[in-house]
Design a protein around this nucleic acid. Structure first.
Lengths: 196, 196
DNA sequence: ACCTGAACACCGTTCAAGT
DNA sequence: ACCTGAACACCGTTCAAGT
């Protein structure tokens, strides 16, 4: 039953190969035909799993958001039961992802806003929700001030997003990003000055 | 002297057409052959100005950074002679650019980090320098605390970058981005709480 | 359902040639 | 210097066909 009809997980194999290519050479270098060649199927076999090139990219983005979500959740779960620690862990996981998977994250954000890619936007949602829930929890427990919850929440997300962007594009090193994250969390927790 | 050899500003015309295409359809839809067709030259004429597709994209990014720099400088110059106002104006110009030229800014950042594109990285530098100089000026005049200049500076740049990213990808509206900018500036100026 | 093979239009890039 | 025209290899996409 190995059957010349391939193993049945062609879709997964294509995605893995595409992710590798994305990491090494960027999204422009992802070619359906080349992926098919590498996977040992006809140039047309991928079409059954991904109707066009765009849908392959979207699938990559969806999987990326799912993985990012898992890593944020994992980091939060592994942190001490203290709001500052959990927030720091979540943001740290985000920045780590931005450094390790720069091209993928770029693709993810790029498609999440694209008109056509509804599924990508849906996959992106839980990531923002994860941050939002965490922050709202801190506000409810009083660990974070809550003069205007939604504004503070957005500002925090923006800041983490910005640090991830700087780190992802190499404008700050990972060590500098860690310091930035510490400073940002401390600032938001209202600990006073930014730098000790 | 109109000469069938085209007008002499083929390069500029190609860039303009490419920018339009980028805005309307994204970078993937930029095709040298199509630009040549639209401009009324042979499919090979662009090659004299841009040796390959990548160099056209890099030229777009370089021009983009130059324009962004000009708009930031213009905004700062037009603001009141008060650090908070000038900072707010600079960040506002940045966010406006992110909203109006989302695809271009995405391309700019993407190429500024790319290994090969040294000229793009060089064009990007003045933009960061503009923010850095502004912030350092505020620290020197005492309008901005300076416990640790470089850390605060990076955190501010990251925050503005994040707000621009949220606004550019449509995750916040332009009005929300304005509020975010106000909050961020107020926070950094140490005015106390984030929300009044 | 899943894959193959041929065909079409398009693209980037290169080369030889024209003015 | 700047542009043309032909040629090459590659690509995404579609269609008819095989199992």
């Amino acid at each position: 039953m190995p059957s010349n009809y391939h193993h049945g997980n062609l879709r997964a194999e294509l995605l893995t190969a595409a992710e590798k290519k994305l990491r090494e050479s960027g999204p422009d270098q992802i070619s359906l035909r080349e992926l098919a060649r590498e996977t040992g199927v006809s140039h047309n076999a991928p079409h059954r799993h991904f109707p066009d090139r765009q849908s392959l990219l979207e699938a990559l983005a969806v999987a990326g958001f799912e993985r990012l979500r898992e890593e944020i959740d994992g980091a939060v779960g592994g942190a001490r039961d203290d709001f500052g620690q959990r927030l720091r862990a979540a943001a740290g996981a985000f920045v780590r992802f931005a450094v390790d998977e720069t091209a993928l994250l770029e693709l993810m954000f790029s498609l999440a806003k694209a008109e056509g890619a509804k599924d990508v936007a849906e996959a992106a949602d839980p990531v923002y929700t994860a941050f939002a829930d965490l922050i709202e929890g801190g506000q409810e427990s009083g660990e974070l001030r809550s003069d205007d919850p939604s504004r503070l929440k957005l500002l925090m997300i923006a800041t983490f997003q910005g640090i991830a962007s700087l780190a992802g594009t190499g404008r700050v090193s990972e060590a500098e990003a860690d310091v930035l994250l510490d400073d940002a969390v401390q600032l938001f927790l209202g600990a006073g000055t930014i730098a000790r």
